[in-house]
């Protein structure tokens, strides 16, 4: 089961929205595929992110993954703790392992994201492939 108060992307990122701000991270489904996370690269405060485009990268043992933003907007906060403790993403992907907070440019973009039930269906399909 995935947290019901979040919205999800097909590429396994989540967003938690409060008014016009959204906190972004990756799901525990994505985390399970990332054995031994070693580095995270996040944007700086003030940078613009675009829905569907890369906002950062993450390296597990020998593989670099692009992180895709679920929405467009401006980065207002980043989780500084991840620089020295990337394992927080693995240990607590929906809590301490959050990555960035974004000021949303267009709230309507949220309608294109999946809810927990739809996301669960997607992950089941992916596992069966």
């Amino acid at each position: 089961m995935y947290p019901e108060d979040l919205k999800y992307t097909k590429t396994h990122e989540w967003i938690k929205v409060k008014e016009n701000r959204g906190i972004i991270g990756i799901t525990d489904f994505a985390v399970r595929r990332l054995t031994d996370l070693v580095y995270v690269e996040l944007p700086s405060k003030g940078e613009k992110v675009t829905k569907g485009s890369s906002f950062g990268t993450i390296e597990s043992v020998k593989a670099v993954f692009d992180l895709n933003s679920p929405v467009s907007g401006e980065v207002i906060k980043i989780n500084e703790k991840l620089t020295n403790k990337p394992e927080l993403i693995t240990e607590d992907p929906y809590g301490e392992g959050w990555m960035i907070e974004v000021k949303l440019q267009d709230i309507a973009e949220l309608n294109t994201l999946m809810d927990a039930k739809e996301y669960e269906k997607l992950t089941k399909e992916e596992e069966e492939k």
């Binding site: 590429t11 890369s54 043992v61 020998k62 593989a63 670099v64 993954f65 692009d66 895709n68």
Partner: peptide, 22 residues
């Protein structure tokens, strides 16, 4: 060598790295 690298008599002779996007 690390797990699943290619070795010849325990000497690593092939290694790899990946990138993934969508």
């Amino acid at each position: 060598p690390t797990s699943f690298d290619v070795v010849k008599e325990e000497k690593k002779i092939a290694g790899s790295a990946q990138r993934r996007k969508n």
